[in-house]
Computed example of a mutant assay.
Amino acid sequence: MVMRWEAFLDQVKERGAYKSTEEAERATRTVLALLGAHLVGEVRADLAARLPEDLALVLLSPLQAREPLSPEPFVRATAAWIEGATEQTAAWDVSAVLSVAAEAAGEELTGHILLQLPAGYDLLFGHPQPA
């Protein structure tokens, strides 16, 4: 089931404690564009199918990462793309967006997403894996 645009942004806004929907949208678009560059194949398409159309297009943008970033460089890349962000605020942005994306994806797809990413993303998605 596709999550509605307003519902997705409202949840990101709440989890990220953003003052405005515009802030939540900026973080969401940045994080999903970077995430989309790290996912491939059916997993990427399946996640896109569960996101609001505008966000699916962001996820499916033609960016491709040369190599998958581990969580720390992913957060640094997010900070570089969001004006005025620090690594601390970017970590907050990434977690707010990815935890909502995980809810939209559901348990099974989130598991497949985590298999495509380097170790450590489970915490950013709010799905800590047993050691």
Rank of each mutant, 00 (worst) to 15 (best):
L124G: 03
A37I: 15
V97W: 13
L55S: 11
S70N: 06
R26L: 15
M3D: 12
A24L: 02
R44G: 04
A96C: 07
Q64S: 07
L115I: 14
L9A: 10
A105H: 02
E72V: 15
E67F: 06
P62Y: 14
R76I: 02
L39H: 08
L109V: 07
S95T: 10
E87V: 14
R66F: 07
H112V: 08
P73H: 02
I113M: 12
R76S: 15
H112N: 08
A101N: 02
L51C: 04
W5C: 15
H38R: 12
L57P: 01
H112M: 10
P62S: 11
D93M: 03
P71T: 04
P118M: 06
A49Y: 13
A105P: 04
T30I: 03
L39P: 15
T86S: 12
D122V: 12
F8K: 11
A105N: 05
S95Q: 14
E6C: 10
Q11D: 15
A96V: 03
E67Q: 09
E108I: 02
V97Q: 02
T78Y: 01
E83W: 00
L9D: 14
V100D: 09
T28L: 08
R4V: 07
F74L: 00
P73Y: 07
S61R: 14
L35R: 03
T110I: 06
E83H: 02
E87Y: 05
H38S: 13
D54C: 04
A104P: 04
P52K: 08
S61M: 09
L59F: 14
P73A: 01
P52A: 06
G41V: 06
G111T: 13
A49W: 05
A85W: 01
R4N: 12
T30W: 07
L9H: 13
V40L: 12
R44V: 09
R26Q: 09
A80F: 01
